[in-house]
């Protein structure tokens, strides 16, 4: 279920990127895309079993314990941080654009 939702989120994000001309809206679409991508990556490592647990080492290790795949989770941690970096740069560029053109709309900026 979440798998389909994440794919839909990716599609909605791409749709937003293609249709919006507002700088802030474009960055928001990028964020939606990234959230969808992150959920998608996590679902790849997920095991739909009752007994599967989160990949955390505890003191009482049971002998045969099934954990979900920890590698996609590590990938998502990196991807989240990278996403914040791009968002921050995008917003600072948006601020600069506002200083220069006094609008957030890409169409109203025009060629200088």
């Amino acid at each position: 279920m979440l798998l389909y939702a994440s794919v839909l989120l990716i599609v909605i994000g791409l749709y937003g990127l293609l249709t919006n001309r507002n700088v802030i809206k474009i960055i928001l679409s990028l964020n939606v895309l990234e959230i969808g991508l992150n959920i998608f990556i996590i679902t790849v490592g997920f095991l739909d079993l009752e007994e599967a647990i989160a990949p955390i080492i505890t003191l009482q290790q049971r002998a045969s314990v099934i954990v979900v795949d920890p590698l996609p989770q590590a990938l998502v941690l990196t991807a989240i941080v990278i996403g914040v970096g791009t968002t921050a740069i995008g917003l600072s560029l948006a601020k600069k654009m506002y200083d220069k053109y006094h609008t957030f709309n890409l169409d109203e900026m025009g060629e200088e």
Binding site: I42, V76, L77, I80, V84, T87, L91
Partner: peptide, 23 residues
């Protein structure tokens, strides 16, 4: 729900908190 508590904590702090503040 997908059994990734570490990612959940990071997303709550960074994704929900920091990004919203920046915006």
């Amino acid at each position: 729900l997908l059994k990734a508590p570490d990612v959940a904590i990071t997303e709550a702090v960074i994704g929900s908190g920091l990004v919203t503040t920046l915006f």
